[in-house]
Protein backbone atom coordinates (compact mmCIF):
# COMPACT_ATOMS: atom_id res chain seq x y z
CA UNK A 1 0.00 0.00 0.00
CA UNK A 2 1.04 3.57 -0.62
CA UNK A 3 1.35 5.42 2.67
CA UNK A 4 1.85 9.16 2.85
CA UNK A 5 2.82 11.16 5.91
CA UNK A 6 2.39 14.69 4.68
CA UNK A 7 0.69 16.36 1.72
CA UNK A 8 2.00 19.63 0.30
CA UNK A 9 0.43 21.57 -2.54
CA UNK A 10 3.47 23.60 -3.55
CA UNK A 11 3.36 27.23 -4.63
CA UNK A 12 6.46 27.17 -6.84
CA UNK A 13 8.57 24.76 -8.87
CA UNK A 14 11.57 25.62 -6.71
CA UNK A 15 9.68 24.55 -3.59
CA UNK A 16 8.73 21.30 -5.32
CA UNK A 17 12.32 20.75 -6.43
CA UNK A 18 13.71 21.33 -2.93
CA UNK A 19 11.20 18.91 -1.40
CA UNK A 20 11.87 16.35 -4.10
CA UNK A 21 15.59 16.12 -3.22
CA UNK A 22 14.71 13.99 -0.19
CA UNK A 23 14.65 10.34 -1.08
CA UNK A 24 11.39 9.45 0.64
CA UNK A 25 9.44 12.37 -0.82
CA UNK A 26 7.62 11.98 -4.12
CA UNK A 27 5.85 14.03 -6.77
CA UNK A 28 2.30 12.90 -7.42
CA UNK A 29 0.87 13.13 -10.91
CA UNK A 30 -2.35 11.20 -11.44
CA UNK A 31 -1.13 8.75 -8.74
CA UNK A 32 -2.33 5.69 -10.66
CA UNK A 33 1.08 4.12 -10.95
CA UNK A 34 2.25 5.27 -7.53
CA UNK A 35 -0.83 3.83 -5.88
CA UNK A 36 0.08 0.32 -6.95
CA UNK A 37 3.38 0.47 -5.09
CA UNK A 38 4.17 -0.66 -1.60
CA UNK A 39 5.82 2.45 -0.35
CA UNK A 40 6.15 4.78 2.64
CA UNK A 41 6.24 8.36 1.43
CA UNK A 42 7.36 11.26 3.61
CA UNK A 43 5.90 14.15 1.68
CA UNK A 44 3.61 13.88 -1.32
CA UNK A 45 4.36 16.85 -3.54
CA UNK A 46 1.35 18.16 -5.48
CA UNK A 47 2.06 20.38 -8.51
CA UNK A 48 -1.59 20.99 -9.29
CA UNK A 49 -1.57 24.60 -8.11
CA UNK A 50 1.04 25.75 -10.63
CA UNK A 51 -1.06 26.08 -13.77
CA UNK A 52 0.81 23.23 -15.45
CA UNK A 53 -2.43 21.60 -16.57
CA UNK A 54 -2.69 23.41 -19.89
CA UNK A 55 -1.81 22.73 -23.51
CA UNK A 56 -0.61 26.01 -24.98
CA UNK A 57 -0.58 26.20 -28.76
CA UNK A 58 1.69 28.83 -30.26
CA UNK A 59 2.51 29.55 -33.88
CA UNK A 60 5.30 26.97 -33.99
CA UNK A 61 4.73 24.59 -31.07
CA UNK A 62 2.52 22.94 -28.47
CA UNK A 63 3.59 23.32 -24.84
CA UNK A 64 2.11 20.53 -22.78
CA UNK A 65 2.31 21.02 -19.01
CA UNK A 66 3.20 17.98 -16.91
CA UNK A 67 -0.20 17.97 -15.17
CA UNK A 68 -2.13 17.81 -18.44
CA UNK A 69 -4.25 14.66 -18.39
CA UNK A 70 -4.39 11.94 -21.02
CA UNK A 71 -8.00 12.95 -21.63
CA UNK A 72 -6.90 16.50 -22.45
CA UNK A 73 -4.43 15.07 -24.97
CA UNK A 74 -7.23 13.03 -26.49
CA UNK A 75 -9.58 15.98 -26.81
CA UNK A 76 -7.23 18.80 -27.80
CA UNK A 77 -8.33 20.00 -31.21
CA UNK A 78 -5.09 21.68 -32.32
CA UNK A 79 -2.84 18.81 -31.28
CA UNK A 80 -5.05 16.24 -32.98
CA UNK A 81 -5.39 18.32 -36.09
CA UNK A 82 -1.61 18.59 -36.29
CA UNK A 83 -1.15 14.85 -35.72
CA UNK A 84 -4.21 13.79 -37.75
CA UNK A 85 -5.63 12.17 -34.63
CA UNK A 86 -2.51 10.12 -33.82
CA UNK A 87 -2.30 11.47 -30.26
CA UNK A 88 -5.95 10.62 -29.58
CA UNK A 89 -5.43 7.19 -31.15
CA UNK A 90 -2.49 6.55 -28.84
CA UNK A 91 -4.35 7.26 -25.60
CA UNK A 92 -7.92 6.23 -26.37
CA UNK A 93 -7.56 2.64 -25.16
CA UNK A 94 -5.73 3.42 -21.92
CA UNK A 95 -8.03 1.98 -19.22
CA UNK A 96 -11.09 4.26 -19.37
CA UNK A 97 -12.29 7.84 -19.54
CA UNK A 98 -12.29 8.21 -15.73
CA UNK A 99 -8.67 7.01 -15.58
CA UNK A 100 -7.60 9.32 -18.39
CA UNK A 101 -9.26 12.26 -16.64
CA UNK A 102 -6.55 12.10 -13.97
CA UNK A 103 -3.53 10.21 -15.38
CA UNK A 104 -0.92 12.80 -16.34
CA UNK A 105 1.54 13.39 -19.15
CA UNK A 106 4.28 14.13 -16.58
CA UNK A 107 3.85 10.79 -14.79
CA UNK A 108 3.66 8.94 -18.10
CA UNK A 109 6.87 10.37 -19.55
CA UNK A 110 8.85 10.48 -16.27
CA UNK A 111 7.95 6.82 -15.66
CA UNK A 112 9.43 5.80 -19.05
CA UNK A 113 7.23 2.72 -18.96
CA UNK A 114 8.02 0.05 -21.53
CA UNK A 115 4.36 -0.37 -22.45
CA UNK A 116 3.69 3.34 -22.79
CA UNK A 117 1.48 4.42 -25.68
CA UNK A 118 2.09 8.01 -24.57
CA UNK A 119 5.86 7.76 -24.78
CA UNK A 120 5.64 6.00 -28.15
CA UNK A 121 3.58 8.67 -29.87
CA UNK A 122 5.63 11.60 -28.55
CA UNK A 123 8.87 9.91 -29.62
CA UNK A 124 7.72 10.00 -33.23
CA UNK A 125 7.07 13.75 -33.00
CA UNK A 126 9.69 16.50 -32.69
CA UNK A 127 9.45 16.53 -28.89
CA UNK A 128 11.64 17.98 -26.16
CA UNK A 129 11.27 17.71 -22.40
CA UNK A 130 11.75 20.72 -20.14
CA UNK A 131 13.04 19.88 -16.66
CA UNK A 132 13.27 22.37 -13.81
CA UNK A 133 17.05 22.02 -13.26
CA UNK A 134 18.36 20.22 -16.34
CA UNK A 135 16.54 22.46 -18.80
CA UNK A 136 15.47 21.32 -22.25
CA UNK A 137 16.51 17.90 -23.58
CA UNK A 138 15.21 15.94 -26.54
CA UNK A 139 12.71 13.25 -25.59
CA UNK A 140 14.93 10.71 -27.32
CA UNK A 141 17.72 11.49 -24.85
CA UNK A 142 15.39 11.83 -21.88
CA UNK A 143 13.98 8.34 -22.37
CA UNK A 144 17.43 6.82 -21.96
CA UNK A 145 18.26 8.68 -18.74
CA UNK A 146 17.57 6.97 -15.42
CA UNK A 147 14.78 8.36 -13.23
CA UNK A 148 16.27 11.27 -11.28
CA UNK A 149 15.00 13.80 -8.74
CA UNK A 150 14.41 16.63 -11.19
CA UNK A 151 10.93 17.83 -12.14
CA UNK A 152 9.48 17.32 -15.56
CA UNK A 153 7.82 20.70 -16.16
CA UNK A 154 6.46 20.32 -19.70
CA UNK A 155 6.83 18.81 -23.14
CA UNK A 156 7.36 20.96 -26.20
CA UNK A 157 6.20 19.56 -29.54
CA UNK A 158 7.46 21.58 -32.50
CA UNK A 159 5.09 22.02 -35.39
CA UNK A 160 7.36 20.82 -38.15
CA UNK A 161 5.39 19.82 -41.26
CA UNK A 162 4.68 16.16 -40.65
CA UNK A 163 2.68 13.09 -41.62
CA UNK A 164 2.06 10.81 -38.62
CA UNK A 165 -0.07 7.84 -37.56
CA UNK A 166 -0.43 5.50 -34.57
CA UNK A 167 -1.08 1.77 -34.28
CA UNK A 168 -1.06 -0.60 -31.34
CA UNK A 169 -1.89 -4.25 -30.81
CA UNK A 170 -3.89 -5.27 -27.72
CA UNK A 171 -5.58 -8.47 -26.60
CA UNK A 172 -8.53 -6.32 -25.59
CA UNK A 173 -9.35 -2.65 -25.35
CA UNK A 174 -8.20 -1.23 -21.96
CA UNK A 175 -5.50 -3.89 -21.51
CA UNK A 176 -1.79 -3.05 -21.69
CA UNK A 177 -0.55 -3.11 -25.31
CA UNK A 178 1.40 -6.04 -26.79
CA UNK A 179 3.14 -3.66 -29.18
CA UNK A 180 2.95 0.08 -29.77
CA UNK A 181 3.98 1.87 -32.95
CA UNK A 182 4.01 5.47 -34.16
CA UNK A 183 5.41 6.48 -37.53
CA UNK A 184 6.12 9.93 -38.87
CA UNK A 185 7.59 11.58 -41.94
CA UNK A 186 9.42 14.87 -41.39
CA UNK A 187 12.67 16.54 -42.41
CA UNK A 188 12.59 14.31 -45.48
CA UNK A 189 12.79 11.03 -43.51
CA UNK A 190 10.53 8.34 -42.10
CA UNK A 191 10.70 7.65 -38.35
CA UNK A 192 9.21 4.71 -36.44
CA UNK A 193 8.87 4.55 -32.66
CA UNK A 194 8.12 1.04 -31.41
CA UNK A 195 7.44 0.20 -27.77
CA UNK A 196 6.04 -2.54 -25.51
CA UNK A 197 8.60 -4.95 -27.01
CA UNK A 198 8.10 -5.10 -23.99
CA UNK A 199 11.02 -2.71 -23.45
CA UNK A 200 10.49 1.01 -23.64
CA UNK A 201 9.88 2.66 -26.98
CA UNK A 202 12.83 3.36 -29.27
CA UNK A 203 13.02 5.44 -32.38
CA UNK A 204 14.33 4.05 -35.67
CA UNK A 205 15.09 6.46 -38.51
CA UNK A 206 15.10 5.42 -42.18
CA UNK A 207 18.71 6.43 -42.69
CA UNK A 208 19.20 4.09 -45.65
CA UNK A 209 16.28 5.72 -47.46
CA UNK A 210 14.35 2.51 -48.03
CA UNK A 211 11.38 4.79 -48.61
CA UNK A 212 11.72 7.35 -51.37
CA UNK A 213 9.37 10.02 -50.05
CA UNK A 214 6.31 10.99 -48.06
CA UNK A 215 3.91 8.84 -50.05
CA UNK A 216 5.29 5.40 -49.33
CA UNK A 217 4.32 2.46 -51.52
CA UNK A 218 3.17 -0.74 -49.80
CA UNK A 219 6.45 -2.38 -50.81
CA UNK A 220 8.57 0.42 -49.37
CA UNK A 221 6.54 0.50 -46.15
CA UNK A 222 7.01 -3.23 -45.74
CA UNK A 223 10.75 -2.98 -46.35
CA UNK A 224 11.14 -0.23 -43.74
CA UNK A 225 8.96 -2.20 -41.29
CA UNK A 226 11.22 -5.22 -41.69
CA UNK A 227 14.32 -3.10 -41.15
CA UNK A 228 12.79 -1.68 -37.96
CA UNK A 229 11.95 -5.16 -36.66
CA UNK A 230 15.50 -6.31 -37.35
CA UNK A 231 17.11 -3.42 -35.55
CA UNK A 232 15.16 -3.60 -32.27
CA UNK A 233 15.42 -6.01 -29.36
CA UNK A 234 12.35 -8.06 -28.43
CA UNK A 235 11.45 -10.07 -25.36
CA UNK A 236 8.59 -12.23 -24.13
CA UNK A 237 6.13 -11.67 -21.30
CA UNK A 238 2.63 -12.84 -20.37
CA UNK A 239 1.10 -10.77 -23.22
CA UNK A 240 3.18 -12.08 -26.09
CA UNK A 241 6.39 -13.75 -27.19
CA UNK A 242 9.43 -11.98 -28.60
CA UNK A 243 8.88 -13.76 -31.94
CA UNK A 244 5.26 -12.63 -32.15
CA UNK A 245 6.18 -9.03 -31.39
CA UNK A 246 8.93 -9.07 -33.99
CA UNK A 247 6.57 -10.60 -36.55
CA UNK A 248 3.85 -8.01 -36.12
CA UNK A 249 6.21 -5.02 -36.11
CA UNK A 250 6.41 -4.72 -39.93
CA UNK A 251 2.63 -5.10 -40.13
CA UNK A 252 1.94 -2.24 -37.73
CA UNK A 253 4.67 -0.06 -39.25
CA UNK A 254 3.28 -0.61 -42.74
CA UNK A 255 -0.35 0.01 -41.73
CA UNK A 256 0.62 3.20 -39.95
CA UNK A 257 2.77 4.42 -42.85
CA UNK A 258 -0.01 3.89 -45.36
CA UNK A 259 -2.44 5.73 -43.08
CA UNK A 260 -0.08 8.59 -42.22
CA UNK A 261 -0.74 11.94 -43.76
CA UNK A 262 -4.16 10.95 -44.98
CA UNK A 263 -5.76 13.18 -42.33
CA UNK A 264 -9.42 12.76 -41.42
Amino acid sequence: MLQINRYVKVSSLEEAYELNQKKNNVIIGGMHWLKMMDRMVGTAIDLSGLGLDEIIETEDSFEIGCMVTLRQLEQHEGLNKYTAGAVADAVKDIVGVQFRNTATVGGSIFGRYGFSDVLTVFLALDTTVVCHKAGEVSLQEYVKLPQDRDILVKLIVKKVPMAVAYQAQRHARTDFPILTCAVSYWNGTWHAAVGARPGRAELVVDENKLVSGETATAEEAKAFGKAVAKQLIYNSNMRGSAEYRQQITPVLVKRAMLAAGKGR
Binding site: M31, S48, N101, T102
Partner: peptide, 13 residues
Protein backbone atom coordinates in the same frame (compact mmCIF):
# COMPACT_ATOMS: atom_id res chain seq x y z
CA UNK B 1 -18.42 17.37 -13.21
CA UNK B 2 -15.65 15.17 -14.66
CA UNK B 3 -15.85 11.42 -13.97
CA UNK B 4 -12.77 10.20 -12.07
CA UNK B 5 -11.75 7.10 -10.12
CA UNK B 6 -12.17 8.06 -6.45
CA UNK B 7 -10.01 5.09 -5.40
CA UNK B 8 -7.01 6.86 -6.94
CA UNK B 9 -7.61 10.46 -5.93
CA UNK B 10 -6.06 11.84 -2.76
CA UNK B 11 -8.87 13.34 -0.71
CA UNK B 12 -6.65 16.35 0.04
CA UNK B 13 -6.82 17.23 -3.64
Amino acid sequence: DKPVLSCSVLAAR
